[in-house]
Design a binder for these strands. Structure first.
Length: 256
DNA sequence: ATGCCCCCGTCCCGGGGA
């Protein structure tokens, strides 16, 4: 089973690229972030026409997540548990083919320090609690998405330039590392130790052409999922298309 | 030190992104 994660930066603006990606057969499950549309306006037909199932959790203009899959999606959870007052659509879970998957659009947190950074850290606390709870079922779990965390300096083209940013701050990295302490594996890093890998390049200042990227899209695997990991990769092709998202897909394969 | 670029909304600017 191939599971991909892609921050598409608008489900509507990226319809063509998403359809091409589904039809190309590069994934069996696609975890989507930044759909930026209300559920009533979500482009369901695109997925129907491709023969895929899709569930989504959105809001007007900002955030929004979705899960698309060839196989049926069951036991869907909408929103990250732990705060009834949080109205930002940044999290969804489902079970597909015996694997529990979550699509994650973690808050950016800038400017830091400040209330947005506090929200990011609180959100990460809730994510870690949920990640811990998911381990109890002892089934494969894949937590994937735009974590808005640059785990190490190797994951950034210009560490000094990013010093103090919410994506590199010690508090953000510490909260991210807690997933590892719980037993989750960073699949891309595990498959490519010591290698420079990026998943996001800013639209501005020719970042893509200069390869000024950062690695902020992650595939985190429970032990049961890590045991089945065959390969994890960054697919840089979609970032080079016309009118691309600023993120490119990351994906992994689990053996059956 | 700031903007570069891109998306959304009821919209020709401003907020947000990372």
């Amino acid at each position: 089973m191939r599971i991909a994660s892609w921050n598409v930066n608008s489900a509507k603006a990226r319809q063509g690229h998403i359809l091409d990606y589904l039809k190309a057969g590069r994934a069996d499950v696609l975890l989507i972030q930044e759909t930026k549309t209300q559920d009533v306006n979500f482009p369901v037909d695109l997925y129907d026409d491709a023969g895929w199932n899709v569930v989504f959790h959105g809001q007007k203009s900002y955030n929004g997540v979705a899960i698309a899959a060839r196989q049926p999606l069951t036991d869907v959870v909408y929103g990250l548990p732990g705060d009834y007052e949080d109205e930002q659509a940044r999290y969804m879970e489902a079970t597909v083919g015996g694997v529990r998957v979550a699509t994650i659009y973690l808050p950016n947190g800038n400017p830091a320090p400040g209330p947005k950074f506090d929200y990011k850290l609180a959100w990460m606390g809730r994510l870690n609690a949920r990640a811990k709870a998911l381990l109890q079922d002892e089934i494969p779990v894949v937590l994937a998405g735009d974590f808005n965390v640059i785990p190490q300096d190797i994951d950034c083209y210009d560490p000094p330039g990013w010093e103090g940013d919410a994506l590199t701050r010690a508090e953000s990295r510490a909260a991210f590392n807690r997933l590892s302490f719980l037993g989750y594996t960073d699949a891309l890093r595990a498959c490519h130790p010591g290698q420079v890998l990026y998943s996001y390049w800013d639209y501005q200042a020719g970042a893509w052409q200069k390869d000024n990227g950062v690695r902020i899209d992650h595939l985190m695997l429970s032990p049961e999922a890590a045991d089945r990991l065959v390969v994890a990769e960054v697919d840089k092709v979609p970032r080079g298309l016309e009118k691309p998202s600023d993120h490119t897909p990351v994906w992994l394969e689990l053996r059956e």
